[in-house]
Computed example of a mutant assay.
Amino acid sequence: MKWGAKYGPEYVNRLYGMVRRHLTGDFNFVCLTDDGHGIRPEVRCLPIPPLNLHLKPGQRDGAWKKLTTFEADLHGLRGTALFLDLDVVVVGSLDGFFTQPGEFLIIHDYPRFWRFGERIVGNSSVYRFELGAHADVLAHFRGHMAEVQREYRNEQEFLSRFLHRQGRLAYWPAAWCPSFKYHCIPAWPTNWWKPPFVPPDARIVIFHGEVNPPDALAGRRNKRFAHIEPALWVGEAWKA
């Protein structure tokens, strides 16, 4: 999914290249977007279904648009869909993401020491579902938009808890989708001389928060007093 100006077509093109190198057999690669200019011809560009968010002045729509992937009829698409955020880096085989048992699979969101209680929320950088099978998620959001946005911080929290109540939520094996900032950066102070690494059994590295793939490759962090060495493996993996 690509909208606005934050990510250019090169992100889509590189994502396609990584998927092609790491997924066996034929597949359809779809980008829901408001601008298909510059996207490689192997990618099928389709419009993002309207969500008609009720936003206050200055309020960002965040990732709520992701919920439109659950349309009952998403441009006539059928079959099993694996959703990938544009800024992930694929480093291993993707075949298992299509064979892992479960009705709806998502990353188990990364634990933080200040969280208490049962950890249910998933990180929606990578999720798998049957197209059209969870239209009730989107229907509920559209029918209770203001209430949902008051109760949940973002779309992944709403999505996870909605499907958890239905008994449909399952998680990828923890090693498959490590976080770059939590799992790939060496512990302080070795981060000042040791470069970020790919954890064992990683398949898709997730970039969330202050570091994106170009930052990791260049050895940049947007966090004061934080430091990383260049992650050269990003350049080897993140290419069209």
Score class of each variant (00 low, 15 high):
V205Y: 06
R153D: 08
N212F: 10
V205S: 08
A146F: 03
P213A: 06
A170E: 09
V211E: 08
W192V: 06
R150F: 11
H140Y: 12
G143I: 03
W188A: 14
A174I: 01
V198H: 01
T190C: 10
H183K: 09
R142I: 03
V148K: 06
Q149D: 00
S179T: 02
A187V: 11
Q149P: 00
W188S: 14
T190D: 13
L163M: 05
F207D: 01
Q166G: 10
F162S: 02
L169T: 07
F158V: 05
N154Q: 13
H208G: 11
R142H: 01
E147F: 06
R150P: 02
A139I: 00
F207W: 03
H183A: 07
S179K: 06
Y171E: 01
P186V: 04
L138S: 02
P213H: 02
A187D: 05
I185L: 02
Q166L: 12
V148D: 10
P189E: 11
V198R: 00
C177A: 12
K181D: 10
A174D: 13
F158G: 07
L138H: 08
A187L: 09
V148F: 02
G167L: 07
H183C: 06
R150V: 14
C177F: 04
E210V: 07
P199M: 11
R153Y: 07
Y171I: 00
V205T: 10
R165D: 03
P186D: 04
D136L: 08
A170D: 13
H164I: 01
W172A: 05
S160F: 05
N191T: 05
Y152A: 05
R165H: 05
V148R: 11
V137A: 00
Q156C: 12
H164R: 14
G143P: 00
I204Q: 11
F197C: 09
H164V: 02
D201E: 15
L159T: 14
F141V: 00
G209R: 06
E147T: 13
S160A: 10
F207S: 00
R153M: 04
N212Y: 08
P214A: 11
I204N: 09
E155R: 07
